[in-house]
Design a protein around this nucleic acid. Structure first.
Lengths: 140, 140
DNA sequence: TTCCATGCAAAGTGTTTGCAATAAT
DNA sequence: ATTATTGCAAACACTTTGCATGGAA
């Protein structure tokens, strides 16, 4: 079992204010890919006085810590994914922009041929499967 | 040889105003991944009165036509890639955000296992290799 | 005429920042 | 006492939109 976001943060002795804890709690779970605004809205339900700036600051810190992944969709705001420690890809609905995590099974990662590297050193590969989710397929 | 952007557009009988032609010309080439602002700046060198709005409108039309690909980096403005007809991946520098095209050689595309599809119908796969470009590796 | 593309400026999103007040060490 | 975090509002970066003008079909 994976340790969850909040546990990981405590283990890193990250100073845990009420605001930060609430942001971390809002992000916990599977297939969670909220925008900053959505995080703010949900955090407010638990802690009405939390500010937008603090949400943005906190999200940026979590990303810097490597505990949350930032996703930049083609349109719309950035999304935040707490599933930072299990390598996975994303399934994105082109219609409603829903996002699902896809585990990386044994499938080999794509690789760049040496002749195409142009001197780059590659540290990571992002894979996004784009398509249509079942809900959007159902109502055309 | 690939037909270039401008030729493809003429073939589609896209109404070609001076503004649109200049935008298309600015985008022509290999490894071109300009932001809207950069397109505007370069278009202005040839056609000083072209407006930002027209550049944005034109870019959006080209994307809608499928003649240009839109790239959303994690930070910074969207980038526009005229290489829409040869399937390719991207090599992105995490430091300076330079982008290079990587041809898809015989390597198989990643696939989603049926059990992970969750009802999605997948139409496309985007692969981004993230890392550090030679220039940024040289000056740390 | 009728329609569409353009320029301009304003408005709209989404995100960051400066700063004083507050809380933690 | 010192340092870090917060809230607020303003600034900022990027993109879209409304509308009057002008050119093309």
């Amino acid at each position: 079992m994976e340790t969850d976001l909040l546990t990981r943060l405590r283990d890193r002795s990250w100073r845990l204010s009420p605001q930060r804890r609430v942001v971390a709690e809002v992000l916990a779970g599977e297939h969670v890919h909220l925008s900053a605004e959505q995080v703010h809205a949900r955090a407010r339900e638990r802690l009405p006085e939390i500010s937008r700036a603090t949400v943005y600051n906190t999200l940026n810190e979590l990303v810097a810590l490597g505990e949350v992944i930032e996703i930049a969709p083609t349109g719309g705001p950035r999304r935040y994914d707490p599933n930072a420690h299990a390598a996975h890809d994303h399934l994105v609905c082109d219609v409603c922009h829903a996002i699902r995590d896809v585990p990386r099974r044994g499938v080999p990662r794509p690789v760049v041929a040496d002749e195409d590297l142009a001197g780059y050193r590659v540290t990571d590969v992002d894979v996004v499967f784009r398509g249509v989710c079942p809900d959007c397929a159902a109502r055309p």
